[in-house]
Nucleic acid binder design. Structure first.
Length: 122
DNA sequence: ATTCTGACCGCAA
DNA sequence: GTTGCGGCCAGAA
């Protein structure tokens, strides 16, 4: 293949691998923000890259549904198939979703506190 | 190189 | 609570 094997591709693959690993590390029944995942993967300010990568893994074995926006809202447009699917999967593992959003501690102050923050259902 | 896009983020009003 | 806007950065055209 004529696929480039240079350092740029290598770096991109590493980013992808680290981000996927961070997503897989989210415990069952918990959620995390795009930015938090990026930060934890070692790439702060790469929230949009996380979103992009999740899209590539659509359907693959990856708990993509546990990734939400920083404010706890589902990133898909309300009513879209993606929105409904994510909502369904979250509820299936006991996460409380109200009006397309999950209660999350505020990101920004203490990143670590926000990373695996969950809805507090119980 | 330049331009456009996006499952985003933070802050201000 | 909401909306708007600038900032952010990798990928694709």
């Amino acid at each position: 293949m004529s696929r480039r094997r240079g350092p740029v591709d290598a770096a991109a693959e590493l980013r992808r691998a680290r981000i996927v690993a961070a997503v897989r590390a989210i415990p069952h029944g918990h959620v995390a923000g795009y930015g938090a995942i990026a930060h934890r993967a070692g790439y702060p300010r790469h929230a949009r890259l996380v979103a992009r990568i999740l899209g590539e893994y659509e359907g693959a074995e990856l708990p993509w549904h546990r990734v939400l926006r920083a404010d706890g809202r589902i990133a898909f447009a309300e009513g879209s198939s993606g929105f409904r699917e994510q909502c369904r999967r979250l509820r299936a593992e006991g996460v409380r979703v109200e009006a397309g959003r999950v209660r999350m501690p505020r990101a920004g102050d203490d990143v670590d506190a926000a990373v695996w923050g969950w809805d507090g259902a119980g």
